[in-house]
């Protein structure tokens, strides 16, 4: 037992902030991927021919049934095995993005199904085609109605992004580990990292609340 001394953190403050910045970058880019991918998967599962829909459903089933950590290992090491050497950062974004795309797809699919059939009839009666109706009328509404759980997934993504430190991406946890390897002060650095996550989490929650209020106006 060596006692606690948080002043050891000070010299590494910049390192931790850079880590936090990369955590934010990871969250935003993987979040964007998970959103677009979620819409894509939902539409495929609902409307694509079976030959496309079934593999996507199987992929979703596997992603929902296995740990993110395992998926990251598989993407990172698996791609190397088949000769695709992607940088760890790209593997992390793709892994996190796909993982949460699957959860978003599940939500958006239910949201699409829940849009009143009168909306489709209204659009079709004007002369919109199936895809135009989906794109301009049904999907925008499905996304508005499912904004809270999709936002919840983004918050989960922020925290789960810590896992990509295991494949060597220089985000917040990785910064803390670097500092610990020089100072041997895990408690102080992990608590500081936790505090930074907590702040990022608060900022993200506040941003989502603002966005939801904005959406609420147009309903």
């Amino acid at each position: 037992m060596q006692g606690l001394d948080f002043t050891v953190v000070a010299p590494y403050w910049d390192l931790l902030l850079i880590g936090a910045w990369w955590t934010a970058v990871l969250t935003v880019s993987a979040g964007a991927l998970s959103f677009v991918g979620g819409i894509l998967f939902a539409v495929i599962v609902l409307y694509a021919p079976k030959i496309v829909a079934y593999p996507v459903r199987a992929l979703m089933w596997v992603f929902m049934g296995t740990p993110l950590l395992l998926q990251l290992f598989l993407i990172y090491f698996g791609l190397v095995q088949i000769g695709i050497d992607i940088p760890a950062l790209a593997a992390g974004i793709v892994g996190l993005g796909l993982h949460f795309a699957v959860y978003n797809a599940d939500i958006i699919r239910a949201g699409i199904v829940a849009v009143d059939v009168g909306q489709t009839e209204g659009a079709r009666s004007i002369g919109f085609g199936k895809w135009q109706t989906l794109r301009h009328v049904v999907i925008p509404q499905a996304i508005r109605n499912t904004a809270p759980p999709i936002g919840g997934n983004l918050i989960a993504l922020l925290k789960e992004s810590s896992i990509v430190s295991v494949i060597g991406i220089a985000e917040l946890v990785h910064s803390a580990q670097l500092a610990i390897s020089e100072t041997f002060r895990p408690f102080e650095f992990y608590i500081t990292a936790a505090a930074l996550y907590y702040i990022l989490n608060l900022v993200l929650e506040a941003a989502l609340r603002r966005f939801e209020r904005h959406v609420e106006v147009s309903r």
Binding site: D116, G118, Q119, G122, A123, V137, P140, R144, S218, R219
Partner: peptide, 11 residues
């Protein structure tokens, strides 16, 4: 076409 329940696009 005009519907009983309007079917305006709420978004």
């Amino acid at each position: 076409m005009v519907f009983q329940h309007f079917n305006l696009f709420p978004h």
